[in-house]
Design a protein around this nucleic acid. Structure first.
Lengths: 338, 338
DNA sequence: CTGTTAGCGCATTCAG
DNA sequence: CTGAATGCGCTAACAG
């Protein structure tokens, strides 16, 4: 039990033992060159620290070491399934390495993202892991961050010409594969696609994947209807579906989780049901998929793996190599594999 | 654009202008006593700061002010819908007030939670907001935190005899109301309840609410079957439903979101469907509820409001009053109100 | 094996 | 109206 809780610092415990703060610091951090300090001193110090209820002040430590053992996690919306699961694993893996994580929700707002990014630098995080909506615009900031000796890791959203490691899934290949298998299974009529901001390279890649499949199936793109505006929100998914439905598509691709949710919601409100009234295939799993009346084929992302990799890159001392790490996505269809 | 990016501190800009760091500091923080400094100096300083790309070092500032403008958010699982939405609003509201938030996922593990809590103190967060699984056990730590001058706000999970503000919904009343309306609507046969750790006071309150309703409906508790073990995970929900189904309940109450998801999953895998094979009512909304074939009555929590209140209490300078803030929960039934 | 000294970058008394 | 000096708590050269 702490005695003078909350107000004990290194000096206190040093004076208490008639030692120097230096000694205490080194012992408490196991940072003594090589087999120095007698065992007895070590014991005494540790005991005293516990007894006095010493809690190191990470601020002071960070200031003097220029190392905070913190990372910033910047995502569009932590409440979305993908980022939620990502965050859990990421935070866990970071913690395993002694790191704490700041959370920022950008809501895909560019200005807000910039503010958060700089805020994180001011807080001297050692690294920031970001699913950025800035695209190539982020280059300048990355350089800045590197000048400050901070690591930057991008994930989820693709971007070109970026001087930072980038962790994504193989959006195009995965979507193409999914589309191919779906297109093969029957004649389809009009094909609808629900996507978000066309400037989002990840979404663009997914769309390309679909185009690849259409080409291979010798389907004219004239049968392709694309609803692409704004964000990847459920609201936009609803709106897009509504818009798409005017073309009575036999097959609908949704390119992001929230879009899918919105699309299904709107379909239901039109008394339509995926599987019977139209076929649905989508990128990423979505909540409640398991209890739709039919199986919805989807591209399943290796979220946990992404999060682990990002945590590793962010929490290792060395500057991570600038490379695009492309993870293979899986295919999901049958319910309840969670 | 930053010139010597990342390496400019107060002293740099002070020397650059032949001023003292003190002057610069005061101007940049708008902390000049009362109408001091000529307008010109002020302009010069601000201009120079921008030009040199000055980024304040929050660590140093925090160290000297004993105020970090950070808060810790400690929840069981950020990937759950409730905490996810909570976190979004909380982080947003905190940011509005200049605060950054550390995220910790305890996974309802008591030891882990304790570790995180202390870690947060070491990082000198100004406040921590926690949905604690420690129950009354947390008292000691709260005292410790207060000794260190840190604010503590509890939410979501009830606990007695706690010297900190507590923000919850009226678990018992809400659940009782829901149960009453459901029990009235037909004769029910066996009533099943899926809950988690019996030591969780919030869950206990919800269960009490059901008991209240049974009593009012003159239903003997002999018809009540309770599945209560372990956590509130989907896995446990599945297992509990399986177990419950042996009693062929006509009505099932699920007391937490993830439990509900698990229960529905298991029902489906048994080729049972809520609405036709048994009635389901639950605490909290759950993902995909909208496309079940029947409406599921549920208690809807005022998440956003909770988050706002917590953010306000955490980010205000004054020590928040020790009080139990009980928010009324709503009732949901019809789909798509998001 | 242990202690002295000097910062880390900023805010803040006090003097001018 | 402005600056010099001090300290926040800790780490890390450099001595002994």
């Amino acid at each position: 039990m702490p005695e003078a809780a909350g107000k004990v610092d290194l000096k206190d415990i040093a004076e208490y033992l008639s030692l120097s703060t230096c000694t205490v610091s080194r012992i408490l951090n196991n940072r003594m060159g090589s087999a120095k300090y007698k065992q007895e001193t070590i014991e005494r110090v540790k005991k005293a620290a516990k007894k006095l209820g010493y809690q190191p002040n990470y601020l002071a430590r960070s200031l003097s070491m220029d190392k905070t053992m913190t990372v910033g996690l910047c995502v569009a919306d932590i409440a979305s399934p993908f980022f939620g699961r990502f965050a859990v694993i990421f935070q866990q893996e970071a913690a395993r390495r002694g790191y704490s994580a700041f959370l920022c929700n950008t809501n895909s707002d560019k200005e807000l993202e910039k503010r958060y990014l700089n805020e994180l630098l001011s807080r001297r995080v050692d690294a920031v892991v970001v699913s950025s909506s800035l695209g190539a615009e982020i280059s300048g900031w990355i350089e800045h961050a590197r000048d400050m000796g901070r690591r930057v890791i991008l994930f989820d959203r693709e971007a070109d010409g970026i001087a930072a490691p980038l962790v994504t899934v193989d959006n195009r290949a995965a979507m193409s594969k999914l589309a191919r298998s779906v297109l093969n299974s029957a004649e389809t009529g009009t094909v609808g696609v629900i996507t978000g901001d066309p400037a989002d390279r990840s979404l663009a890649q997914r769309l390309e994947g679909i185009r690849d499949a259409l080409r291979d199936a010798n389907i004219d793109e004239i049968h392709l209807v694309i609803a692409e505006t704004g964000s990847t929100s459920a609201a936009h998914g609803r709106q897009s579906f509504r818009q798409l439905w005017e073309h009575k598509p036999g097959l609908v691709f949704s390119l992001a989780c929230d879009l899918t949710v919105g699309a299904v919601q709107d379909a239901f409100s039109l008394r339509l049901e995926p599987g019977s009234d139209f076929r649905l295939a989508c990128f990423d799993d979505f909540p409640g998929r398991e209890w739709l009346r039919c199986d919805i084929p989807y591209v399943s992302q290796p979220v946990e793996q992404m999060a682990e990799i990002c945590a590793r890159l962010a929490c290792q001392p060395e500057e991570p190599a600038v490379e695009h790490i492309v993870l293979p996505a899986g295919e999901g269809k049958s319910p309840a594999d969670s």
